[in-house]
Design a protein around this nucleic acid. Structure first.
Length: 491
DNA sequence: TAGTCAAACTCCTCGTGCCA
DNA sequence: TGGCACGAGGAGTTTGACTA
């Protein structure tokens, strides 16, 4: 979008939504965009996936024209939209309008029997309150600009749809009619636009941090607004802690000042461990867990990818598809560690070959350890449903799975460096400081998913090899990290 | 973005004790 | 015996943390 044009436009739709969440965020976005937090690559990937859904949904109303916006001034986009409306065109994608100082782009605009129908596409699996305000704003602008609007609808993913053959758009997407609902928001939208315009003409609004910083979205300026929060604050307390902001407003910010009686038992443990820099270890709890294991021990970690639009038959939207695993095997105490792995290559459906290799790699009668095993169990159950002929073998693996996170979730082991978290990304550096994700190109599952997608589409052989190595390194570290955690527990 | 799980929370039922 | 208050315990719901 043209920057100069944006400055001339008082509000864009995304800015209005931002302002609904917090006026200060909108003010900073307009006057101090340099203070924005860095957007992670994983967030960018998610944003891009949302865009793809929007483009895919256009096929619900095919043969429309698109209002180009790359490098095109806003005024020209609006003129092109007006020309399309007055012509013979029945469907317009990215139609541009401006009214009341607000600029919007409508995902899909379709000429219906009784007027124009507005379809806003969301990649989520359901309708959220913020979506209604989004379309209410668009309705306000469209009708204000003189367009007769007969229908306002939200198009979102139907996550119960199961692909069977070519994607059936009418089943993949749910279209919910909110024509009557948006009218109820009219007064609210008009007064909010006025409030936001007034605010932008003045100084920065004095809005303190609060629940609005993360609801409905994480604010881009948290790094700026939250800089006065010290290390070891009430915001580091993990788990449910509804009084967080009540205490903050009473001036209680430091973890040390939080009264014990408002904390749960694990939270009190976290507070004590953090303040006294001490670890809590229950030898009995560890023994109970270790006694439930037996050799050969398999340490399994899956990496998965998911798409809003299912790429293969039998898949639901956003269902996780395993594309990689790393498996370390310890045959007996003191034996050499064996390693097996699988990484899909190319765009073909690789689920069956992954499953077959996995079932070959896991020895019979093994005890399989996974970290937060519910995730691995879920993927194995999916594989059993996709390939019923293998379901007995898969069920046997599932019944042998033990969760390595158990001693940490149950707080039999708590290191103060874990900061209330029991994820492997917190536990491993605390227990085994020499093992770190920092040195890797890929340091979490989202990055791995993005790298895998890049690897699939990249035509550069060198880049493919680099991504392949990074993916294998990352997944190997997860399962090897589990081995190290197990060894530390044994000590 | 979704799904899963466990913990925390809420709500309800039931038992107990007290009093009139 | 009935009415009320209170607490314990269970069931159901919500939330947060986790995975990708």
């Amino acid at each position: 979008m043209n920057k100069i044009d944006l400055q001339n436009t008082l509000l864009s739709k995304s800015q209005f939504i931002r302002g609904l969440q917090c006026h200060k965020s909108l003010y900073l976005h307009r006057h101090h965009p340099e203070l924005r937090d860095e957007v992670s690559s994983a967030q960018q990937a998610l944003f891009q996936s949302g865009q793809n859904v929007g483009e895919f949904a256009r096929e619900l109303f095919p043969e429309g024209i698109i209002i180009q916006y790359e490098g095109v001034p806003l005024s020209e986009q609006i003129e092109n939209t007006a020309a399309a409306i007055s012509g013979e065109v029945d469907t317009i994608y990215e139609a541009a309008f401006c009214y009341d100082g607000v600029f919007i782009k409508a995902d899909i605009l379709h000429r219906g029997r009784h007027g124009w129908e507005l379809y806003e596409v969301k990649s989520s699996a359901g309708v959220k309150d913020i979506h209604l305000r989004d379309v209410a704003l668009q309705y306000h602008v469209l009708t204000g600009a003189g367009l007769p609007v007969s229908k306002v609808a939200l198009v979102h993913i139907n996550n119960r749809y199961i692909r069977n053959g070519a994607v059936e758009l009418k089943k993949l997407f749910t279209i919910s009619d909110f024509t009557k609902t948006v009218a109820q928001y009219r007064e609210e939208i008009i007064s909010e636009i006025s409030r936001q315009k007034q605010m932008l003409c003045g100084g920065m609004p004095a809005i303190d941090i609060g629940e609005h910083c993360t609801n409905p979205y994480d604010c881009d300026f948290m790094g700026y607004c939250w800089q006065h929060i010290p290390l070891d604050s009430i915001f580091d307390i993990s788990g449910r802690f509804a009084q967080r902001f009540d205490l903050y407003r009473q001036g209680i910010v430091r973890l040390a000042d939080v009264p014990d009686d408002v904390l749960s038992k694990p939270q009190r443990q976290q507070k004590r461990a953090t303040l006294e820099k001490r670890n809590f270890i229950s030898a009995r709890g560890i023994k109970r867990f270790l006694d439930s294991l037996h050799y050969p021990l398999c340490f399994l970690d899956f990496e998965c990818v998911s798409f809003p639009i299912p790429p293969y038959d039998g898949l639901r939207p956003y269902q996780h598809i395993p594309y990689q695993y790393s498996l370390h095997i310890l045959e007996r105490d003191g034996a050499a560690l064996q390693h097996f792995e699988y990484l899909a290559e190319g765009t073909a459906d690789h689920r069956q070959s992954l499953l077959e290799k996995l079932l070959r790699d896991i020895p019979p009668q093994a005890c399989v350890l996974a970290y937060n095993a519910a995730y691995e169990i879920g993927r194995l159950k999916d594989l059993a449903a996709w390939y019923p002929a293998q379901s007995k073998k898969i069920e046997a693996v599932i019944s042998s799975i033990r969760d390595l996170a158990e001693p940490f979730r149950g707080r039999a082991v708590y290191y103060y460096q874990m900061n209330g978290s029991y994820s492997i990304k917190s536990v491993l550096p605390a227990l085994v400081p020499e093992m770190s994700y920092d040195a890797l190109d890929i340091s979490d599952g989202n990055m791995a998913m993005q790298a895998f997608l890049q690897m699939m589409v990249s035509s550069n052989l060198q880049e493919k090899q680099r991504l392949k190595k990074a993916l294998l390194d990352y997944c190997r570290l997860d399962s090897l990290g589990m081995v190290k955690i197990y060894e530390t527990l044994k000590k």
